[in-house]
Write a protein that binds this DNA or RNA. Structure first.
Lengths: 186, 186
DNA sequence: GTCTATACCTTGATAGAC
DNA sequence: GTCTATCAAGGTATAGAC
């Protein structure tokens, strides 16, 4: 892994653990054994690093989407849930949620990139929800896009909320949503 | 309103707009016409101000809970939704969500106070959900506490997410949840 | 690409006068 | 209670040598 990638991955983790405004170049330099000035060689400004982190996240997500594109909708839902299960296991939060709370403090470049990321997530989830309903795997009322917003909201906030209540709550929330969505044979 | 209250209210707004680590004493001093040193008279440290903000939020919520305690469950649900509608109108986020993303950077006093606040919210919502189901106003499966977690998650994240997608999405999410919950006469 | 050195700014916080 | 003055710490960022 290149130093550039190392920096991005560490920054990603720090943002999701502490928030964008609380992590510093020094923390990165300290861990990967490189001086703060050297980080500026790879990323001239903190905003450049911020956008790179979001880009990295979008690439990973795109790969995941591609890798399950021929799988049934319920498998896609599982994959989607797994993203947040992993996040929650580390007591972190998701990138979108972390950056959304700091939105007003971000540079326009970072803001726009973040909107791209949320757009990608929303499009994917909307698509496999619609697909699952058509194939009678899922059941829900209204627009697929609205249902996607509801489900994404749930995951996004669950990882935040279970920092305050109980780690076990995450699983309960997840199972409750799944149960509501999966069509019961009555 | 006392200077102390002025400071708390402004800090509350700043946390929900920019995040805990991005707001500074200077911003407060600038707005309410008092020097930063004077703020330290009221709140020796930033953590003291942080806990005071959460306390203030808990007091307001307790008053709201008390004011609707004899009302039917669906009115309570409306009141609960209205809290987030107001937040969303200002493009802000809720205090719990904002502080949850910064959780690891907060002093223990602030962390504990925040857990108290989330406990209060969760207890109230669980209670009126259980009550509403018993009176056959609401319908849902499983524990009231789990359903409360799901609904709180939705509101908490909606105000964050609609910063990135579309302001109108908030209302759609809200209506979708309400429709799912309110018992249909079939 | 990475280093040293350093500039420059913003913060939270304190001391002491009024 | 509020002020002025001041501090130490920590942050991003740049210049220039290697």
């Amino acid at each position: 892994m290149s130093k550039r990638e190392e920096i991005i991955e560490l920054a990603d983790n720090l943002i999701r653990q502490k928030g964008y405004n609380a992590f510093s170049f020094y923390e990165i330099s300290d861990v990967i054994g490189i001086k703060t000035a050297s980080i500026h060689y790879h990323f001239p400004s903190k905003s450049d690093l911020g956008t790179a982190v979001i880009d990295y996240c979008m690439c990973n997500l795109s790969e995941l989407i591609e890798s399950v594109k021929d799988k049934p909708a319920d498998i896609k839902l599982d994959k989607f849930f797994t993203i947040y299960s992993k996040i929650q296991k580390d007591s972190k939060v998701c990138l979108v949620g972390s950056l959304a709370t700091d939105f007003d403090t971000l540079d326009h470049n970072v803001q726009n990139k973040l909107k791209e990321l949320s757009g990608l997530i929303l499009a994917w989830v909307s698509e496999f929800l619609a697909e699952g309903r058509k194939q009678e795997i899922f059941q829900f009322e209204g627009l697929a896009r609205t249902k996607a917003l509801v489900i994404i909201s749930n995951m996004l906030a669950s990882v935040q909320l279970t920092r305050l209540t109980n780690k076990a709550d995450f699983k309960k929330i997840k199972e409750s949503i799944r149960k509501d969505l999966i069509k019961q044979s009555k």
